[in-house]
Computed example of a mutant assay.
Amino acid sequence: MNVSTQVRHSRTVRLAAALLSLAAVSACGGQPAADAVGAADAAAPTTRFSENGVTVTLSVSDWKASEGTLTALFTPEKKGFHLYSTELPATGIEGVGRPTAVAVTGALKAQGGLKAAAEVRSISVPGVDAQVPVYPDGPVTTTLPVRADGNGDATVLVGYASCSTRDGCTIPVSDRPVRLRITGDGPTFAAS
């Protein structure tokens, strides 16, 4: 192999190693180039925050004719933690739990109900007579159809609580605001 071929081969090997490293980071929970939220719509406006043991990723996708889908991916930061059903009453069952919630105000309006892409299961909680509806441990994706009600400011209000049967619960989050701006070009999230 001549020097020129060796240099090209070395560059190719380094490039392949870098790409494999990037793929490994993405597969192991690193920050992928396009999250599962918005993977089909790479240009979708996206924002993220972490609070009380859960990372929430919000995006607006499929934006056409002032309508789209607001997606919220709720990811507990520790293994073994679950989120409560969107159908749970606002104050929980006998005070236990808080619903996974996403609502919009201002220049953005809901066009239907919040849907979760996870099966609800019921668990028994010591000291509570009724079963409590939760999602399986791990991430939960919710979607809310939305439409713009003109241009202006909008707010997404996010609520949730996460619990573990072994490690207890985190402090619930209620009506955590995330700001958006709606223009003729569509929605954009305000800087966090």
Rank of each mutant, 00 (worst) to 15 (best):
A36W: 07
P187S: 10
D167N: 01
S21C: 08
S162I: 01
A44P: 07
A90D: 07
T142S: 09
V96Y: 14
L114W: 12
R166V: 05
T86C: 06
T75S: 14
V13M: 09
G113E: 13
G152I: 04
D167M: 00
A36D: 11
R14N: 14
F189N: 10
V3P: 10
V96S: 06
A161S: 02
G184C: 08
P32K: 10
T46Q: 11
T5A: 12
M1S: 13
S122Y: 12
A148W: 07
G184N: 14
N151H: 02
A117T: 12
P32T: 10
V104R: 10
K109S: 15
V25G: 09
R98D: 02
A24N: 05
Q111N: 15
G138H: 05
S192Q: 15
S10F: 01
A24E: 09
H82L: 00
A36N: 11
V173E: 11
T183L: 05
V140Q: 06
E119V: 07
A154I: 09
T100P: 00
V156Q: 09
G29M: 03
S4C: 02
A18N: 01
G184Y: 11
D41P: 00
A34G: 13
A101Q: 06
V13Q: 11
A43V: 04
R176T: 03
A33G: 15
I182Y: 12
A43Q: 06
V60D: 12
H9F: 07
G168R: 03
T69D: 13
A42H: 11
T47C: 11
T100N: 06
N52T: 02
T5V: 08
A24K: 04
R176L: 03
G80L: 00
P187N: 08
F81W: 01
L180G: 08
V140K: 07
A72C: 11
R14L: 10
A36C: 06
K109L: 09
V25W: 09
S66E: 15
R166P: 03
V54M: 01
A116Q: 10
F81D: 00
G92K: 08
R147L: 07
F81E: 03
V102G: 04
L180V: 12
